[in-house]
Nucleic acid binder design. Structure first.
Length: 104
DNA sequence: AGCGTGACAATTA
DNA sequence: ATAATTGCCACGC
């Protein structure tokens, strides 16, 4: 079995990330208002090839965690960036909360 | 139980 | 706008 028992918290986070459509982003705090660091841990543990759109997860101020590598992926998906191109325009790119996934 | 660490967030200077 | 500080909470040893 490849995927084994991820904790419910971890699984919930993965699902939330997977739910981000192309062209949009969500912040760590939006996914887990109380434990944004858990999200980072999950992403790091998952790796770049985990099937998760990790590049669509950005910080609360619109800055990205993985630098140019992530920015390139975001630009490729037409994600609205702020002048300067270093941060995401959250006002336009932030994906609304999908039904069924309410933050604690 | 304590201690250190972290793909964070909000505040203050 | 950048840097430093504090708060937060979950994980691993």
């Amino acid at each position: 079995m490849l995927g084994v028992a991820d904790d419910e918290r971890t699984e919930r986070i993965k699902a939330a990330i997977r739910a981000i459509p192309e062209g949009f982003v969500r912040t760590y705090g939006d996914i887990a208002p109380r434990t944004p660091r858990l999200v980072g841990k999950v992403l790091r543990d998952a790796g770049d090839e985990a099937g998760l759109p990790w590049h669509r997860v950005v910080r609360a101020d619109g800055s990205v965690t993985q630098g140019e590598r992530q920015l390139k992926l975001l630009r490729a998906e037409l994600v609205p960036l702020r002048p300067g191109g270093k941060k995401v325009d959250l006002e336009d790119a932030r994906f609304p909360l999908p039904p069924g996934e309410s933050p604690l």
